[in-house]
Amino acid sequence: WEITFERNGKRITVRTTDHRLLELFEKLWRNGADERELERLAEEINR
């Protein structure tokens, strides 16, 4: 799966075969987690 999240013109794409990681990322994104931390998390998930 691949999903791109966008907020205030900032886009972060997450790619993984584990839908649970996408759900976790989406919850953090929707709850306003720090964008720098989300970028780092996305990099780890995308590996």
Rank of each mutant, 00 (worst) to 15 (best):
W1C: 11
W1F: 12
W1V: 12
E2D: 08
E2W: 04
E2H: 02
E2A: 01
E2M: 02
E2Q: 03
E2Y: 05
I3H: 12
I3E: 09
I3F: 10
I3G: 07
T4R: 02
T4F: 06
T4V: 15
F5L: 12
F5A: 03
E6H: 05
E6V: 10
E6K: 01
E6M: 04
E6A: 02
R7F: 12
N8Q: 06
G9T: 02
G9H: 04
G9F: 01
G9K: 02
G9N: 07
K10V: 15
K10D: 03
K10W: 06
R11F: 14
I12Q: 01
I12S: 00
I12K: 00
T13M: 06
T13H: 07
V14K: 00
V14E: 00
V14T: 00
V14Q: 00
V14R: 00
R15D: 01
R15K: 13
R15S: 09
T16W: 04
T16C: 03
T16E: 01
T17V: 08
T17G: 10
T17D: 11
D18L: 03
D18V: 04
R20K: 15
R20H: 13
L21D: 04
L21Q: 09
L21E: 04
L22Q: 04
L22A: 08
L22V: 11
L22E: 01
E23C: 11
E23Y: 04
E23W: 05
L24P: 00
L24G: 03
L24E: 13
F25H: 00
E26Y: 11
E26N: 05
K27S: 13
K27W: 13
K27R: 11
K27C: 15
K27M: 15
K27H: 14
K27G: 10
L28T: 04
L28R: 07
L28W: 11
W29R: 04
W29C: 09
W29L: 12
W29Q: 07
R30N: 15
R30Y: 15
N31K: 09
N31E: 15
N31P: 04
N31L: 05
N31V: 05
N31W: 03
G32H: 09
G32T: 04
G32F: 05
A33Y: 08
A33N: 05
D34M: 15
D34R: 02
D34L: 15
D34A: 10
D34Q: 05
D34F: 15
E35L: 15
E35P: 10
E35K: 03
R36P: 12
R36K: 14
R36D: 15
R36T: 15
E37L: 15
E37A: 11
L38K: 01
L38W: 11
L38S: 01
E39V: 12
E39A: 10
R40F: 08
R40K: 12
R40Y: 08
R40S: 11
A42H: 03
E43M: 09
E43N: 12
E44H: 14
E44Y: 12
E44G: 05
E44A: 14
E44R: 11
E44Q: 13
I45Q: 02
I45T: 02
I45L: 06
I45W: 04
I45E: 01
N46A: 10
N46H: 07
N46V: 09
N46T: 10
N46W: 05
N46R: 07
N46S: 12
N46G: 07
R47I: 10
R47C: 08
